[in-house]
Design a binder for these strands. Structure first.
Lengths: 177, 177
DNA sequence: CGTATTGGTTCGGTGACCGAACCTATGGTG
DNA sequence: CACCATAGGTTCGGTCACCGAACCAATACG
């Protein structure tokens, strides 16, 4: 953590990891990045995060090699943040954490994660229940469940109502009517 | 999070989970609880956490059913905090997070986690590399690696220098010379 | 009786996080 | 050309979580 006080006394890779991704909002930014969110404004409206905090998190995550900032158009200059291998490697953690949250603190199923090749649900650590193999993140399909608000306010949530492969860039509706 | 602002806008079990265990220190307390730490003072010296923060975290974790406070002696009244099933269910998350931290941000191996029955290392999601089965937390043995300080200051770290099963209560040396 | 151990609570200071406002660069429109 | 919209930020004042240190309480030991 870039806090005034890190976990300096800890000899532990969990503590090291939390120094990087343990700050507020950070893991949610990574989650969105895995869902295909890439643009500053999309993170902003989807997360409801203060702008200054988002800017700080994007900078830290880029510096740590979890996201990569790249220019996708020259004029006007526009950058996007794309998740790297190192960020993709956080998927098992997020998967485990989400499963724990759902099993212990959520009543309805919000989203399903399935193996694109066969359609079967993922197991607890991201393996395909049918094939048995650990599914690469790019082959995971996110399908909305019954617990989701069917008509959310922000365009990113609306875009996420359609089944969607992870990592694939999110297409937000161009200024809906 | 019991912060002034939670992740209210998020319909996501990851966000729900982070509201519970996303505050600073919380996951490290759970980690220590899985390692067998049970007493207020042991958490305190091992984590280097401010007393007030530790008291708050223990209370929250108890309220959420992740730890259970119980009296282990009557006179003087002494309580210990024991990890529950719900807390044990966080092991895959911590395992994944620790592995990510080690692979990306740590040079030397700090600890090994092995299957008690056969001695083989655990895989990325806590399965035994030899048997293939997902190892119950109680059958995981933690073995210190070469990266650990061989003579740490606090008694809890010293007690953790010996190979040790997870969940088993930690025996701290009774006031070393 | 004084001291040590365990498990806290209280308190003042600092800094992370908060929302809102402002800034810059470009593009589109009438 | 004036005006507004969009994308991607920075700045600012206020609040609240976190920080370390001090203090408190109950009991045991000598």
């Amino acid at each position: 953590m870039a806090l005034g006080k890190d976990y300096a006394t800890q000899e532990c890779s969990i503590a090291r990891a939390l120094e990087i991704v343990g700050e507020r909002w950070t893991l949610l930014v990574v989650r969105d990045a895995l869902y295909g969110v890439r643009r500053y404004n999309d993170f902003l409206v989807h997360l409801g995060i203060p702008r200054a905090v988002l800017a700080a998190r994007l900078q830290t995550l880029t510096a740590e090699g979890i996201l990569e900032k790249r220019r996708y158009q020259q004029s006007p200059p526009r950058d996007e943040y794309v998740v790297t291998e190192r960020g993709i490697a956080l998927w098992p953690t997020l998967r485990a954490l989400g499963l724990w949250g759902r099993e212990h603190f959520t009543e309805t199923q919000l989203r399903y994660f399935r193996h694109a090749d066969c359609g079967a649900d993922l197991g607890p650590y991201g393996e395909c229940r049918a094939c048995g193999v650990v599914v690469p993140v790019a082959d995971v399909v996110m399908v909305p469940g019954p617990g989701l608000d069917p008509d959310p306010a922000d365009p990113v949530s609306r875009a996420l109502l359609k089944p969607k492969r992870l990592l694939e860039p999110l297409e937000t509706e161009p200024a809906t009517a």
